[in-house]
Amino acid sequence: MKLPSHGRYDFHPIIERPDYAWPDGKRLAVCIVTNLEVYAYLKGTGWDPAKLNEPQNQRNYSWRDYGNRVGIWRLFDLFDKFGIPAAHNVNSLLYDDHPQIFEKIRERGDEIVSHGRTNAERQGDLWEIDEQRLIADVTEKISANEGAPPRGWMGPAASESRVTPDLLKEAGYRYVMDWPADDQPFWLRTRSGPLLSVPYPAELNDSAAIIHRRQTAHDFAQMIVDQFDEMVELSAERPLVMTISLHAFVVGQPFRLKPLREALRHCVEHKLKDRVWWTRPGDIADFCYQLPPGLVPGEGPAPSTP
């Protein structure tokens, strides 16, 4: 019996991979990625803080809007406190009514990652031509506002169709964060050539931990500490990527900020901090694209000729 397969990558166990290092000999790349989202009022999909499977209503809409009105500004302050760069998974419709958020992102020099039009829709349900249009809408909106196209994509709810990587590659994207299969970047096959997968967590994710698994803010903070402690040690053997996923309407709540602050302080001040590259997913992708073939798992692009 043969199971249905995606055909996007082969099995490359991490223990058999060659070693390399991040810039300046660093061993652990750490990315903080926020999710900045907009939702349709009383329509579409979206999380609820109080009840499972609750229909869309004014309460869950306004709870999510808290992230844009309040939560993200507290996260910006937190990142500034520790001098941490960040990337932001951005719904492109956020540009219509939230200009101050983008002013702060530009001021900080953070990265904007495409995150669909709105988290009220899921691209995995679309026909190919409609998904192609969605990707084009998002790319054009970000490009028009930022003066350059985004490098990376993270689908709303990590939703993908059978052809999403193909469409992203054809739209000019360099990396995607929808495949939580590894602690290192790896190449995905598409019908138009390789596309890089940059690690993004299904578990080290405040929405998954706190909203879905009903864990506390202290549980989530301890997850960050334990993940960092383990990965900074393991990175002595091979380069690794640790990405932390934050939603401004979840961890931006005041009672969750203190444990998050202490977890980040632990990481920033760690005794092995010299091993750590605090960075953004786009910088990881750019670095991987210039590595010699064979270091990143999978079938990467052919080396450029001088």
Rank of each mutant, 00 (worst) to 15 (best):
Y200I: 00
D183H: 08
A208Y: 11
V225Q: 03
Y200V: 05
R191E: 08
A217S: 09
F220H: 07
P180L: 10
L195C: 12
T216W: 01
D206V: 12
F228H: 08
Q222R: 01
F220A: 01
R189N: 12
A221G: 03
F186I: 05
S192I: 04
L196G: 06
H218W: 13
R213L: 15
D219S: 05
S197F: 05
R214L: 13
P185N: 15
Q184H: 10
R213C: 07
Q184G: 11
A221S: 06
R213A: 14
Q227W: 03
F186Y: 10
H212Q: 03
S192H: 02
H212M: 13
D178M: 02
Q227T: 10
I211G: 04
W179C: 12
A181N: 15
W179P: 08
P180V: 13
D229C: 13
I224E: 03
L196D: 05
P194S: 04
D183I: 12
A208T: 15
L195H: 05
V225W: 11
R189G: 12
E203D: 14
Y200L: 02
T216D: 14
I224K: 04
T216P: 15
I224T: 04
P180I: 14
F186C: 01
H212L: 08
D226K: 10
L196S: 03
R213H: 07
W187V: 06
R214Y: 06
A202F: 13
Q215M: 12
P199Q: 11
H218T: 15
M177K: 02
W179I: 11
I210K: 00
R191W: 00
I210Q: 03
A202H: 15
R189F: 10
D229Y: 07
L204F: 15
L204S: 11
P201K: 05
H218K: 06
F186M: 02
E203N: 15
F186P: 09
D206W: 10
D206Q: 07
Q184K: 10
V225C: 09
L195E: 09
L188A: 06
G193V: 02
M223F: 01
D182Q: 10
V198F: 04
D226Q: 09
A221C: 02
A202L: 08
D219C: 11
L188E: 00
S207G: 09
F220W: 06
I211H: 01
F186A: 06
Q227K: 05
S197G: 04
A217D: 05
D183Y: 13
T216K: 06
G193F: 03
D178C: 09
P194E: 05
N205P: 08
